[in-house]
């Protein structure tokens, strides 16, 4: 059964336990600045949105890597950075249109979510169930992926896109 992270912004309170769990698992330190998952806050709307790599099929990051430092984990489907192969060129950071691959100046490498090898700490740490690790069929990720695939639409002068094309999320 393919598993995926399910993110439900409406349940998020902005406590950042996920960011601490992630950084602690991956870096051995409580440090949201080094977390692979990030909660974005929308003060004006009173909303919070946890957000991380969708492990998208396109794997823009992986294909953009010039040295094969990003590989698919066959067990989880996650795209993982091989730290000893990564040269820190950052091409993946601009290639990922979701903005979920970050360059980490301290190590000179990039970091991204690897689903903690199938037991994601963010999900375990979330007190409200805003982040869960569930059967992929049950996630909004399918919809995010569908969106990701269709998003780069043809240029307007050839095929004017309808604004709603990108808005496939349910409210």
């Amino acid at each position: 059964m393919a598993m995926a992270l399910k993110l439900e912004p409406e349940k998020c309170t902005g406590c950042l336990q996920c960011e601490m769990a992630c950084s602690y698992e991956n870096e051995g330190v409580f440090n949201p600045a080094k977390s692979r998952i990030k909660v974005f806050s929308f003060h004006e709307e009173g909303k919070f949105a946890p957000y991380t790599c969708t492990q998208c099929e396109e794997a823009w990051c992986m294909h953009a890597c010039p040295v094969e430092a990003i590989v698919v984990d066959m067990a989880t489907g996650s795209k993982n950075v091989l730290e000893d192969v990564c040269v820190g060129c950052k091409v993946c950071t601009i290639a990922c249109p979701f903005g979920t691959v970050n360059y980490e100046p301290d190590s000179g490498k990039v970091i991204k979510c690897d689903l903690c090898g199938g037991d994601p700490w963010c999900a375990k740490a979330c007190p409200t169930g805003a982040i869960t690790y569930v059967d992929e069929a049950d996630t909004t990720y399918e919809r995010m992926r569908a969106w990701a695939q269709q998003a780069p639409s043809a240029p307007a002068r050839f095929n004017p896109p309808k604004p709603k094309e990108v808005q496939v999320f349910e409210r």
Binding site: T13, G14, C15, L16, Q17, M20, E45, G46, K47, F48, P127, T128
Partner: peptide
């Protein structure tokens, strides 16, 4: 509108 937490808080009384 919603409740909100402070940093690291699992109560979220805000």
């Amino acid at each position: 509108t919603t409740n909100a937490a402070c940093f690291a808080c699992t109560i979220a009384c805000g």
